[in-house]
């Protein structure tokens, strides 16, 4: 398939410039930075997961082999881990689906030559600019159970809610805020993809008598596929790693919104005021490694699936 051929590894071409030294040096410097500050710590985390590092001076670190991993899979922890895993998956899948869905719809809307659409494009992207803390605070204010606007709205229809305190809807609310904050980036990427679709294709299709939905499904959507792949991949990976927003909105001790990354942070550095559970950072590193494997598997699976759909379309 041609698509696959395009994505083949870069072929080593003849270097046209007089001296190789420059490219080697700059590449080397860049790579050195990445290796030193990103890859080395990443590998080190995997190494740390086999120790009982506590992050305290004077307390020696011992090699404990796979004990941390065994602890993780012990039946006592099963409830916590399944909970975190489930929350992470729900967050990633539902969040990404909603994010893609809304982004697609919004970008279709904003692609039309409507008046003031640049303004609306800017508006949609703004939450991403505001950042997690600002976004989190804004929505904490809105979802304030002691009389915030949402509560007043609910009162008006006769119910009420504890919002982030209600274990049934807390995760849903977090997903909602997450989508609100992230949809802007996806919209921008989709818009770019949409604008790359030649107008003639649309016209041809409509001359042939295709309805709007058919045109979308058979012309627009397939050509959007690369943007969709990029977006979904970024969305899923982002969601699986994301915990800053959850942290700001619901705190680290909220079981119903505890995702894997948050578990890593809480276990490594504490965060549950009032408990006396004190894990080692080695254990936290083990969770981080497991999460890495999980994200890798899911990302690869998603990529594989989407690439195949792309090619088929």
């Amino acid at each position: 398939m041609t698509a696959r051929a395009e994505r083949a590894a870069p072929v080593r071409t003849r270097f046209p410039f007089p001296r190789r030294g420059a490219v080697r040096l700059t590449f080397g410097l860049g790579m050195l930075m990445l290796v030193l500050f990103a890859f080395v710590p990443a590998v080190a985390v995997i190494v740390v997961s086999f120790t009982d590092l506590r992050g305290l001076t004077y307390v020696p670190t011992l090699w404990v082999g796979i004990e941390n991993y065994l602890d993780f899979f012990s039946p006592a922890r099963a409830a916590d881990n399944w909970n975190a895993l489930r929350n992470t998956m729900v967050f990633a899948i539902v969040g990404t689906v909603l994010q893609m869905g809304f982004a697609l719809a919004i970008s279709l809307l904003l692609n039309r030559p409507l008046r003031g659409r640049n303004f609306f494009r800017a508006v949609v992207f703004m939450p991403t600019i505001l950042g997690v803390t600002v976004g989190g605070l804004i929505w904490s204010l809105i979802f304030n159970p002691a009389g915030g606007p949402m509560q007043s709205l609910l009162h008006a229809v006769g119910t009420q809610s504890a919002f982030f305190g209600d274990p049934r809807i807390a995760l849903g609310l977090v997903i909602f805020v997450h989508v609100w904050m992230q949809v802007g980036i996806s919209v921008v990427i989709f818009l770019a993809g949409l604008q790359a679709i030649p107008a003639e294709l649309q016209e041809v299709a409509s001359i042939d008598g295709a309805s709007a939905w058919q045109r979308f499904r058979n012309v627009t959507f397939p050509l959007l596929a690369p943007s969709l792949t990029a977006n979904v991949l970024m969305g899923v990976v982002n969601a699986m790693h994301s915990y800053q927003l959850t942290y700001v909105l619901a705190g680290p001790s909220n079981r119903s919104t505890q995702v894997l990354s948050l578990l890593v942070y809480v276990q490594a550095f504490g965060g549950e005021s009032g408990t006396s559970l004190s894990q080692s950072q080695g254990y936290a590193a083990a969770i981080a490694t497991l999460q890495f494997v999980l994200v890798g598997v899911i990302a690869l699976a998603t990529l594989f699936y989407l690439r195949r759909r792309e090619a088929r379309l």
Binding site: A76, R77, A79, D166, P167, R255, E272, L277, S278
Partner: peptide, 19 residues
């Protein structure tokens, strides 16, 4: 340290409705 979070206190008050 090896027990799950539900047994942290160990009386599981965060597990009771509505918490």
């Amino acid at each position: 340290n090896k027990a799950g979070q539900d047994a942290a206190f160990p009386f599981n008050y965060p597990g009771v409705k509505p918490l």
